[in-house]
Write a protein that binds this DNA or RNA. Structure first.
Lengths: 155, 155
DNA sequence: GTCAATTCATACAAGTTTGAACGATTTTCT
DNA sequence: AGAAAATCGTTCAAACTTGTATGAATTGAC
C-alpha cells in the first residue's frame, strides 16, 4: 500500500512481483548458504566449480556469462581458485586469447564431496513447493530471464 | 545435463529451479539498472529511499529487515544517503537506542522524480509475463521466501 | 536499585564486485 | 600483406557487503 505513489495497475503488479522475486531469491540463497553447503567458498567460487564439474572445462568468457558477473571479477574468482589449487588455467592452442579453465584433481574431489549435500539442502528448501509448482516457477523465470526487446529500440 | 552428478529427481528439479530463479532475478535487475532508472544510487540506496517513500519514516532495524542486508551495511547505506542530504536520522524519544530515518525534502523530491520512470521500466521488463502469470510467480515466490522448517531440527 | 542479558547502531578489517583502461591476439576488410 | 575493429583476459581504483567487535541504551531478574 504505497502512500505516495500510484501507478497503473500493470506497474503496481510488476513492482510487487519484482519485490517478491528478489526477496524469495535472496532469502533462499541466504538460507542455503547458512546451512554450510559450500564452506570457504564464495557463491561465485562455488558456481564456477559447479559449472566445471557439470559441464567440463570451459573458457573464462563462458564462465563469466554463466556467473552473470563482470569480466574483472571472473579473473579474480579464478585467480583465487587457482591459488588454492582447485582449478588450473591452460591457454587455448586454437585461439591464444582464450584461457581454458578446468578442475584439478583436488578441485574435482572437493566439489564431488560438497555437491551432494548442497543438492539435498536445495531440495529441502525448495520442497515448500510441489514439483509441479517448481516446474511452473522455472518456466516463468525462464521467460523472465530472457527478457523482451524494448518497445522502440530502432531510434 | 550433469556429466558427473546424478541426484534424485527431486534434487535435479530443485537445482534446476534454483538456477532459473537466480538467473531470472539477476538478469532482470541488471537490465533495469542498465536502463538508468536509479542513477547515482546503489540498489540498497534506492531500496531505502523507496521504502521511506512508500511507508514513511522507520527505524534502521526495519530498513535492515526490508533490505535483507547486514546491519553494518545498513548503517553505511544510510550514512551515504545522509551525507548527500537525502535522508536524516532522528533519535527516537521513546527508545533512545533506535534511530528513526526519514526522507528530507531533497530526498522526497529525488525519489518522486525517479520512481515513476522506474515503475514504467519494471512494468515493461515484466511484461513478457501476462498479469496472470505475474500473479502466479508472485505467489510461488512468496511461499518460497518464507521457507520451511528443516525436517529434523529437534536434535 | 543493581547486575546480567538483550537490542540497536557504529567501527573496522577482509573479501567481493564493478567499470574503465590496457595489452595481446584474432578477425575482417581492402 | 596491412590497417582497423573486435574479442579475451588482466589490472586497478572505487564502491559495496559481510562478519566481528564494541559502545550505548533498555529490559528483566533478583
Amino acid at each position: 500500500m504505497p502512500t505516495h505513489f500510484t501507478g497503473t495497475p500493470a506497474e503496481v503488479l510488476a513492482l510487487d512481483t519484482l519485490i517478491k522475486l528478489t526477496r524469495a531469491n535472496n532469502s533462499l540463497l541466504a538460507r542455503i548458504a547458512h546451512r554450510g553447503t559450500h564452506p570457504d567458498l564464495s557463491v561465485s567460487q562455488f558456481g564456477t566449480l559447479e559449472a566445471l564439474y557439470h559441464l567440463g572445462a570451459m573458457s573464462q568468457t563462458e564462465i563469466c556469462s554463466k556467473l552473470l558477473k563482470s569480466g574483472g571479477n571472473t579473473t579474480l574468482v579464478i585467480d583465487n581458485l587457482e591459488k588454492r589449487g582447485l582449478v588450473q588455467r591452460r591457454r587455448d592452442t586454437e585461439d591464444r586469447r582464450v584461457m581454458m579453465v578446468e578442475l584439478t584433481a583436488a578441485g574435482f574431489e572437493l566439489i564431488s564431496a560438497i555437491f551432494p549435500h548442497h543438492a539435498q539442502v536445495v531440495a529441502e528448501e525448495m520442497s515448500v513447493l510441489t514439483p509441479e509448482e517448481q516446474r511452473t516457477l522455472g518456466e516463468l523465470c525462464k521467460k523472465l530471464g530472457k527478457g523482451a526487446a524494448p518497445p522502440d529500440a530502432s531510434a
